[in-house]
Simulated scan of single mutants.
Amino acid sequence: MEAASGPFNDVLNLEDMREAARRRLPRAIFDYIDGAAEDEVSKRRNRRQFDEWGFVQRVLNDVSAIDLTVEIFGNRFAAPFGIGPTGLAGLAWPKAETLLAREAEKAAIPFCLSTVSSVRLEDVADATAAPNWFQLYIFRDRDLSRSLVERAKAAGYSVLVITVDCPTGGNRERDPRNDFTLPLRATRRNVANTAIRPGWLLRLARCGAPKPENMVEAARAAAGSAQGLVAFMNSQLDPSVTWRDVEEFIGLWDGPVVIKGLLSVKDVERAAELGARGVVLSNHGGRQLDGGISPLTVLPDARKVAGEALTIICDSGFRRGTDIIKARALGADLVLMGRNTLYGAGAGGAPGIAHVISILKSELTRAMTLLGTATIGDIAAEHVHYLGAAGHV
């Protein structure tokens, strides 16, 4: 596999890494990763949510040693964030899911593999010894989803994450504007922009176009050809899925189950009632329903109704260590990153991913020192104050 393209000395934060990825990826690929639904209101709102909360630092505490570690589902992790599931990460870098899993293991943070990964779930599991998580869609073909659960169990995944906010695909308008399709094809509109990214083209030529490897056999059986994979996958998104289906799949798993894609306190309560061990408060990074609220909006109330028994995870919009601290103060146990580590992969493979993780750990350590909190457990509601729209900068 091609080595990363140079050091990241000029990448000081995750926005810098996003810009590095934008320079190195074809526009259609970058926009597929970076884009969101329709007017992208939710995506912008996801960033503004953090401006509505200001820090209340406490001084004269001993913060000479900062401890970022957290315990989630019985496992000790080195920081309160992990790498969330992202479909077809191989568009950013060949076999990116394997790189993401390995870098997460090195950093001792959680990694969750997408159902729609460009590497077979068994191969990702074989690449690490870490207790990885597996994300599942409940497809129209329930037997296909059941088979994925059985494969994940056999491969040793420790946590099942069921995504429930995709009854249909979001309307991501950047994709048709860039003639982005899967399988990838060259058009007059995108060929010039792709041609000036020779590194990406060379990797594509060497490794082939990524496809959702976990579904290849099912698609062949249904459509007679792997070329129908994406159409097959889209046809499997099922608007008839209900809590009854979720309850069945919770029963199929032997360990913790997390329900991902909730924005309602009532849905958080329902997930707990059905036996879920955790939830992910998420608007899917703004990629599904445009205009959906952001996680911090519902987080304090979700924590109140959930108590301490339910693990509460957030994603959508996180870019800074300070963002993670605000979520912790409002009741989150963990934050998952989606686009951020894909920017790192797109900018330079494994070294780019590692640099993203390093930046976040460094920002967390510095901010906790200044806030007066020596451990993650010390971060509490008293450390943030709601500013509302007045906090926007």
Score class of each variant (00 low, 15 high):
Phe8Asp: 06
Arg22Cys: 08
Leu25Ile: 07
Ala28Leu: 15
Ile29Asp: 07
Phe30Val: 06
Ala36Pro: 07
Phe50Leu: 03
Arg58Pro: 12
Ser64Leu: 12
Ile72Met: 03
Asn75Phe: 14
Ala96Lys: 06
Lys106Leu: 13
Phe111Tyr: 15
Cys112Arg: 07
Arg120Cys: 08
Ala127Pro: 01
Ala130Arg: 11
Pro131His: 08
Asn132Ala: 11
Phe134Gln: 10
Tyr137Arg: 04
Phe139Ser: 12
Asp141Pro: 02
Leu144Pro: 01
Tyr157Asp: 03
Ser158Cys: 11
Pro167Asp: 02
Asp175Gln: 06
Thr181Ile: 12
Arg185Thr: 13
Ala186Met: 14
Thr187Arg: 10
Trp200Gln: 10
Trp200Ile: 08
Trp200Asp: 10
Leu201Ala: 07
Ala205Asp: 07
Val216Tyr: 13
Ala222Trp: 09
Ala226His: 12
Gly228Arg: 03
Ala231Asp: 14
Met233Trp: 15
Ser235Arg: 13
Gln236Thr: 09
Val241Leu: 02
Trp243Met: 03
Glu247Gly: 09
Phe249Thr: 01
Asp254Cys: 11
Lys260Ile: 04
Leu263Gly: 03
Val265Phe: 06
Lys266Asn: 13
Ala272Leu: 00
Leu274Asp: 04
Gly278Phe: 00
Ser282Met: 04
Arg287Gly: 00
Gln288Gly: 03
Pro295Thr: 04
Ala302Phe: 09
Arg303Ala: 02
Asp315Ser: 03
Leu330Phe: 07
Asp333Gly: 04
Asp333Ser: 06
Ala345Pro: 05
Gly348Phe: 02
Gly349Leu: 11
Gly352Thr: 00
Gly352Trp: 01
Ile359Pro: 03
Thr373Lys: 15
Ala380Leu: 05
His385Ser: 15
Leu387Gly: 07
Ala389Trp: 13
Val393Met: 14
